[in-house]
Simulated assay, not measured.
Amino acid sequence: MRKLSDAIDRFCLNHPRFGIPGLMRYVVIITAAVFFLDAFSKNAASTILAFDADAILSGEIWRLLTWIFIPEYDRVIWMVVGLFFYYFIGTAIEEYWGSAKFTLFYLSGVVLTVAFAFLSRLWTPWTVVTNSYLNNILFLAFATLYPDALIRLYFVLPIKAKWLAVLYVFLTFYDIVRMDTYAVKLLLPSLLPGLVAVWLVYAVFFWDRIRDVLADIGFLTRHKRSQQTVHFKSAVRQQKKKEAQRGYRHKCAVCGRTDADFPDLEFRYCSRCAGYHCFCQDHIFNHVHFTE
């Protein structure tokens, strides 16, 4: 996976002119045009452009690509909001990566989605291909590159993009887990290939980020299990046990008062004394320093 990710970066570096500058602008414009054509043709435009494996095998090869322009919403207000949002995040990703890498990322999602759709015909006659997974992975890429970007949910509640991405991942797996037996047998075989395709694209293009996260998790696991950590925790438990047996935590080395008898009294430790000696607030600056 790492070699493939590095190969993509090298390709984009050596071919900076590869790609379509302003790709999301064209996607948004064509999608808006299809939306208005559907409004006057009773969704005839979407029917002609939608992915259909049998129709593609019969010669309608334009369906291999035109399914990405099928509108997700049937209401004008949500259509405008959706197109504006995806244009915004797509443009931001392109500015971060450059046109070459962003175009390769988007087209890779399209190609793998189509490939997995045809592959799914080996076990199910129903092939479902929509641009919803592609748009969702586009947002996930944006949240990875701009995790602290504020997005106003329903135009009111500001939420950082990384938390919305976490919510999307959680809801995706939650929807799969909560499926009943009928849905698992009928819908999951036709829907899962598209999800796996776009997640595979995300894993390749963001392998460095994923590797860093896994390394951090591995470090934390090793740190929790290291002998140094185990010994430190053991020493803390022993200290707390001794304090419980004594009945106090701090005891002045001069007057003998403790924090158990005088809870409002402040205690300090003298850095000039040899050893570890505690003094109350009355003797911290008024005592004979301990020496070796």
Score class of each variant (00 low, 15 high):
Ser5Thr: 04
Val111Pro: 04
Arg237Phe: 03
Cys280His: 03
Ala141His: 06
Arg75Pro: 03
Gly59Thr: 02
Arg25Gly: 01
Arg211Gln: 14
Val114Ala: 06
Thr103Asp: 01
Ile56Arg: 02
Lys251Val: 08
Asn43Glu: 13
Arg272Glu: 14
His287Lys: 02
Lys3Thr: 09
Gln245Val: 08
Phe118Cys: 03
Pro21Met: 02
Trp163Pro: 05
Tyr146His: 15
Val128Ile: 15
Phe232Ser: 05
Leu188Pro: 11
Ser271Trp: 13
Tyr133Met: 04
Asn136Met: 12
Ile8Pro: 01
Leu153Thr: 13
Thr229Asn: 10
Ile217Phe: 06
Leu167Glu: 11
Gly19Ser: 03
Ala215Ile: 10
Asn14Asp: 15
Phe232Tyr: 10
Pro71Ala: 02
Arg222Ser: 14
Asp175Gly: 15
Gly22Val: 10
Tyr26Pro: 05
Leu200Ile: 13
Glu266Tyr: 11
His277Ser: 07
Leu265Arg: 03
Phe219Lys: 14
Leu157Lys: 12
Trp163Leu: 08
Pro71Lys: 01
Ile29Gly: 05
Ala215Tyr: 13
Glu266Ile: 08
Lys224Met: 10
Trp163Lys: 08
Pro147Tyr: 15
Trp123Val: 14
Ser5Trp: 06
His289Gly: 03
Leu191Tyr: 12
Gln227Trp: 14
Cys273Asp: 11
Ile8Asp: 02
Ser99Gly: 03
Ile159Val: 15
Asp216Lys: 08
Tyr146Thr: 04
Leu107Trp: 09
Asn136Lys: 09
Thr103Lys: 04
Val129Gly: 02
Arg268Leu: 02
Lys251Ser: 11
Tyr174Trp: 11
Leu134Ile: 10
Lys240Thr: 06
Val114Glu: 02
Asp9Trp: 06
Ile137Leu: 05
Lys233Ile: 13
Ser58Arg: 12
Ala92Met: 06
Val177Gly: 02
Ile20Tyr: 08
Leu145Tyr: 12
Ala92Arg: 12
Asp175Thr: 15
Thr66Arg: 01
Val236Arg: 13
Phe18Pro: 01
Ile151Trp: 03
Val128Arg: 02
Val129Gln: 00
His287Gly: 01
Arg209Cys: 12
Val288Trp: 07
Gly98Ala: 02
Pro158Met: 00
Ala115Lys: 03
Gly82Glu: 00
Thr124Glu: 06
Asp264Val: 12
Phe51Glu: 00
Leu191Arg: 07
Lys185Glu: 07
Val156Leu: 15
Val213Arg: 08
His277Ile: 00
Lys42Met: 14
Gln245Leu: 10
Ala50Ser: 15
His283Pro: 03
Ala203Ser: 15
Pro193Met: 05
Ala161Phe: 10
Tyr26Ser: 11
Pro125Leu: 04
Leu187Trp: 13
